[in-house]
Simulated assay, not measured.
Amino acid sequence: MFIPMKRIFFCFLLLVGSQFQSLGQIQSQKETNWKNFTYDMGNVFGGIGHSYSRPFQWEGDDWANFGYLAAGTAALFLVDDELNNWTNGFSEDVPEFLLDYGNEFGNPSNNYMFTGGVYLAGLFTKNEKLRRTGVLLISSATAGGFLQQVSKRIIGRARPKSGDSSSTYDPFHLNRVFNYDSFPSGHAMLAFSNAYAIGKQFKNPWVKAGIYTVGMIPGFARIMDDFHWVSDVAFSTVLSIFIVESIDRYLDSKYNEKYNAQPKKLSWNLNFGPGTMGVSARF
C-alpha cells in the first residue's frame, strides 16, 4: 500500500507539534510552580516578621489579652509543684501509645515533615487554600519554634525531671542546658499551632474541638513524662494561638482564600470559685 509522502510529512509535523506542545505545558507548569513557591516562601518570612512586630502595634484590648495570659501563667507558676505531684499519681495509667504519639508528633523534624507535606500537596495540585494552609503552618511553626528556643536559653527553668522545684532557674546560656530549658514547651507550641491552623478549615465546633484535643496531646504527654510543668504547656498553647492568628491576618492580604472573612478577636475571662481557678478563652 502506497502512502503519499505529503501525508507522512503532515503526520510527522503533527507528532512533532504535539511533543513541543507537551514540553511547553510542562515548562509552563514548572514556571508556575516556581513562581508560586517563591511567592509563598516570601509570605512565610513576611508572616514571621509580622508576628514578631505585632507587640509594637498592640492597643488596649491586645495588652489586656497579654495581661490575662501573664496573670494566668503566674497563677499556674504558684501551683506547678502541686500539679506535678498530682499528675505523677496517675502518669503510669496513661496509655503508652498516647505518650509515644505526643512525644513524636511535637518533635520539630516530624512537625516540618507534616507541614511541608501539606504545603507541597497544595503547590503541586494548584490548590490555593491548601498552599495558604501550608504557608500558615510553616510560618507559625518557625516563628514559635525560634521564639521558644531563645526563651529557653534566657529563662533556664528547671524541668520536673531534674529533681529541682519549679522555681529553680539557671538563666542566660547561649548553649542549651539540658533539664534547665523547660519554659516554654516547644512540643506543645508546635503541635497546637498545627491544630489551631488546621481547625480554621472547619466551621463545625465539634470538628474543631476534636482537632484541638489531638493538638493538646503532645503537651499532655510532656507533662506526664516530667519534661514540662503545667504552666509551660498552658503558656505555650495560648501563645501559639496568638502567633497563628497574627500570621493568618497577615496572609489575608496575600491570598484570595480567607479563613476569617469576619474578623474575630480573642476574649479572655478569669474564673474563680470555691476550689477552682482558671482562664477561659473565646476565639
Rank of each mutant, 00 (worst) to 15 (best):
F2D: 10
R7H: 07
F10R: 12
Q19K: 10
Q19P: 02
G24S: 13
K30H: 13
K30T: 10
W34A: 11
N36D: 07
F37K: 05
Y39R: 07
I48N: 01
S51L: 02
R54T: 01
P55H: 07
F56S: 07
E59Q: 15
W63L: 04
N65H: 03
G67R: 15
G67H: 14
Y68G: 08
F77K: 15
V79G: 13
D80G: 15
D80W: 14
D81R: 14
D81T: 13
N85K: 15
N85P: 04
P95E: 04
G102S: 05
E104L: 10
E104K: 13
F105S: 03
P108L: 08
F114Q: 06
T115I: 05
G116W: 04
G117Y: 08
G117M: 06
V118E: 04
Y119S: 01
L120K: 04
A121W: 09
L130P: 02
L130E: 02
V135T: 00
L136S: 01
L137T: 00
I138D: 01
S139Y: 01
A143G: 03
A143F: 00
G144H: 06
S151T: 15
R153L: 05
R153F: 04
I154M: 14
S162G: 06
S166M: 05
T168V: 15
Y169S: 09
L174P: 08
L174T: 10
R176A: 11
F178Y: 11
N179S: 12
Y180M: 13
Y180K: 14
D181K: 10
D181V: 09
G186C: 12
G186L: 12
G186R: 12
A188E: 11
A191S: 15
F192T: 11
I198K: 00
Q201N: 07
F202L: 02
V207H: 07
A209V: 09
G210E: 08
M216G: 14
M216A: 13
P218A: 03
G219Q: 10
R222M: 13
I223F: 11
S231P: 08
D232S: 09
V233I: 12
I241K: 04
I247R: 01
Y255S: 00
Y259P: 01
P263S: 00
K264S: 12
W268L: 10
N269P: 05
M277I: 11
